[in-house]
């Protein structure tokens, strides 16, 4: 497989996962704030913080409010990490990988992009926005299903899975970071009273609540939720699950020793996470560090398979 095509398909999968996760993130945040006693506008700003986008946002908007933040996160063409821009990146990468991608996958990505463009006007209205986000998540699941059921287990597939899981781990860790930040807010005496709701909503957003209850057989607490989403090896949205499964796909690729070494290190570090040592309110620091390691893993993948030194013959 061409290195360039490998890179495009990897990014296509990352961007698709990111689209779904941005939708999840906004969706959970909205639901969460409805449950909190004080609907402080400042809480919306957490969404900007976890993408490290504070400066870009303030350059464009004077006020921090739900409406502005939503247009920045979803519809803003000048914000490279807005949902609409991420989606068009996914589409562009798919469009340039049509020879390795199932036809139906391309059609679905194209349809998703038409649908989002047509419903951008909905983002100002909370109810319509939530509906739109749910539809986006559904479509992303559908695309993922097509890739799983129509694509041979070849290198192109391996790169879609590596991309998907690196992105998923990154985004899940940002969602955890956001929740941790909300919980650690110094004005959050009230928030802490509602901690159970906060973490239950988080599990719900990651479609993890049922599996959590099945696994832990106990009501939701911050420590247990964090433990589940970080270290559980059987739930496909936990950080350890993503990190562990990536090595399967690395192993199919030529000469994977370096990426695997780093992947093992990161996994070891994650598995060692202990909520009794790192309290939920400090988890965001752990997540920050994890995101840095993930970026290193991406760099190694890129250097190894996408941009190696081609010795000329």
């Amino acid at each position: 497989m061409l290195s360039r095509v490998g890179e495009r398909i990897y990014w296509m999968a990352r961007y698709l996962e990111r689209v779904e996760d941005i939708a999840r993130l906004i969706n959970v945040h909205t639901v969460l704030l409805m449950d909190l006693p004080e609907q402080d506008e400042i809480n919306w700003f957490t969404l900007i913080k976890i993408f490290n986008n504070e400066a870009a946002y303030l350059e464009q908007f004077e006020h921090v409010d739900e409406k502005n933040i939503m247009s920045f996160l979803v519809a803003d063409l000048t914000n490279p990490s807005s949902l609409i821009n991420v989606l068009s990146q996914a589409r562009e990468n798919a469009r340039t990988s049509l020879d390795v991608l199932p036809e139906e996958a391309w059609e679905q990505i194209n349809e998703l992009s038409l649908m989002v463009k047509a419903s951008l006007s909905a983002i100002g209205n909370r109810r319509r926005r939530q509906n739109m986000l749910l539809k986006i998540m559904e479509r992303c699941q559908c695309i993922s299903g097509i890739i799983d059921n129509h694509m041979s287990r070849n290198f192109a597939y391996d790169f879609t899975q590596i991309g998907k899981h690196i992105e998923r781990a990154d985004m899940t860790s940002r969602i955890l970071e956001m929740t941790s930040l909300l919980a650690s807010d110094t004005r959050g005496e009230q928030v802490r009273l509602h901690e159970g709701i906060l973490w239950a909503n988080l599990l719900k957003a990651l479609s993890a609540q049922q599996m959590y209850l099945y696994e832990k057989r106990t009501s939701v607490s911050a420590d247990k939720a964090l433990d589940f989403l970080i270290t559980d090896r059987s739930f496909p949205r936990s950080l350890c699950f993503s990190l562990a499964i990536i090595s399967n796909y690395f192993n199919y690729l030529p000469d994977p020793s370096e990426p695997i070494a780093l992947q093992e290190q990161i996994l070891k570090n994650l598995s060692a996470y202990n909520p009794s040592i790192i309290p939920a309110a400090d988890a965001h620091i752990f997540m920050d560090a994890f995101q840095v390691r993930l970026a290193e893993l991406h760099q190694i993948v890129s250097d190894k398979w996408f941009h190696p030194d081609f010795a000329t013959i």
Partner: peptide
């Protein structure tokens, strides 16, 4: 994505090399 070798063959740049 293509390169011509000193042997005059045309090669493509893949994840396995040329």
């Amino acid at each position: 994505d293509l390169v011509v070798g000193k042997d005059d063959f045309v090669y493509m740049k893949t994840i396995h090399g040329l």
